[in-house]
Design a protein around this nucleic acid. Sequence first.
DNA 1: TACTTAAGTCACTTAATGGTGACTTAAGTA
DNA 2: TACTTAAGTCACCATTAAGTGACTTAAGTA
Lengths: 204, 204
Amino acid sequence: MARDKEQTKEKIIAAVEQLLAREGFSALGVNALAREAGVDKVLIYRYFDGMPGLLRSYGESANFWPTLNEVVGGDIENLKGKGIGAVVSEVLVNFSRALRKRPLTQEIMAWELVEQNELTAILSELREEWAKKLFATFATEAASTDLDLPAVTALFGAAINYLVIRGRSTPFFNLIEIDNDSGWQRLEAMIHLLCQRSFVSLEP
Amino acid sequence: MARDKEQTKEKIIAAVEQLLAREGFSALGVNALAREAGVDKVLIYRYFDGMPGLLRSYGESANFWPTLNEVVGGDIENLKGKGIGAVVSEVLVNFSRALRKRPLTQEIMAWELVEQNELTAILSELREEWAKKLFATFATEAASTDLDLPAVTALFGAAINYLVIRGRSTPFFNLIEIDNDSGWQRLEAMIHLLCQRSFVSLEP
DNA sequence: TACTTAAGTCACTTAATGGTGACTTAAGTA
DNA sequence: TACTTAAGTCACCATTAAGTGACTTAAGTA
């Protein structure tokens, strides 16, 4: 059996992801992790200085968050003619779709609501940066509305987060099917409609 | 020391609430509970047949959910002249305020996102009934809009749930202060504005 | 008063967890 | 080849949890 430190580290980090995806964060412990990786748990302490350090390493190695490109829909320029309302709703819908494709991210987001640790801290930071960059992308359009843009996007973003997280384990919310596409189509339609009617373009 | 079965049962149920409020659901176990109630844990098995049965009893005994009156604002008749948009946003804002006053409910709602058990099942049922009654209250007004009302209220309701739950442990979301009134004022203002602009009254 | 029932106590088992110290064994090097 | 370093193994500790069986003790009743 080859003795390769780097490879063993990678096995451990891979095991974090597998275990998280398969069993959820409540099952994530030193013992279970070592078992999953087929490795002695003492190596987790030696290489990562314990669970928190391991989570930090994992957090830095992974990419849970959708890319900006993914939510902007590929071509920013294309959106510029559409008016701020259409742009915002399109980004929100893209975001919800991107999130729904990422069970691992969902799992960590659920964890985030319940515990603070190195991993959720990293996710929070990433989200912050991400949101800032996104706002920066639309800085000029954002000026052309009388709405409180951070508040509005916080509302819609929070709604999407909640419904996606909740859809993991519950099929309905408020009579809407949140665990499949048919319900999400209704939600998407209302996101578009609410934004379309609410963002009035100011003439400068 | 008096031997009073009913009183002991009540002590145990009270301990569920205290422990849940003080330590959160992750600390809620048979041992900790017996310790909190000052009672031998075997009684939890004898009287409630274990933890699940105890949660059921607790769930049936408590009232975590805001009353309809609380979210309707006291007088339904008063709202009737206002138009559906104003009514909906007022109910939503009242709901958010009611929820923000209930740390225990917040705790259980967080739990609901992460685990399925007797208690969260009861909370889900209550929410379902509650939502149905609420919709029934405004059945006539609800007809006077072209919006998909369940979808719209699901979005706002989900947003409120998420932000309230998240505010327990994190001060900011998307640049908004969600752990105090100043941020919530901005959110409330946008809820009102979005509803006002989105609900167009149809003439019958 | 003697007896039965049930309320409450105690001690224990089993299993899992996080964490550590001492060991063995492989790889690289003087 | 002999030696050092570090990769990986193993056995163990303390703690905590859920759950159970046997016990004691109080209350009500014949």
